[in-house]
């Protein structure tokens, strides 16, 4: 069973959470001028790595707050948790 450490509530069962997909995807500026390819890149293209993955999660059935999780998609290990306004932590030996 996957357990996720909510930055506020502490470690809880994954069933209490909702995954919001890949994190740190910046909306391109000039949305009315960029071409469809660039827009599609922003909307649809995701990394899908085997290894560390930066994700947004929400503690939907707990404190209802959003936060970031770095999760190993292979082992399901949670490598780091940080707040929405924080920069991703350095994880030695891991690339994202």
């Amino acid at each position: 069973m996957l357990r996720i450490p909510c930055p506020w509530c502490g470690e809880r069962d994954v069933g209490e959470f909702h995954c919001g997909g890949e994190a740190h995807i910046a909306r391109p500026s000039g949305a009315d001028t960029i071409d469809d390819d660039a827009w599609a890149e922003y909307l649809f293209m995701r990394q899908n790595p085997k290894g560390s993955h930066h994700e947004r999660w929400s503690h939907a059935h707990g404190c209802r707050r959003w936060f970031h999780v770095v999760r190993d998609t292979d082992s399901d290990q949670v490598l780091a948790v940080y707040l929405m306004n924080e920069a991703p932590p350095d994880l030695p030996g891991r690339s994202s």
């Binding site: 059935h61 707990g62 404190c63 209802r64």
Partner: peptide, 9 residues
């Protein structure tokens, strides 16, 4: 704790 009991919030 805000949590779930038998799937109920």
């Amino acid at each position: 704790a805000r949590t779930m009991i038998a799937k109920a919030d």
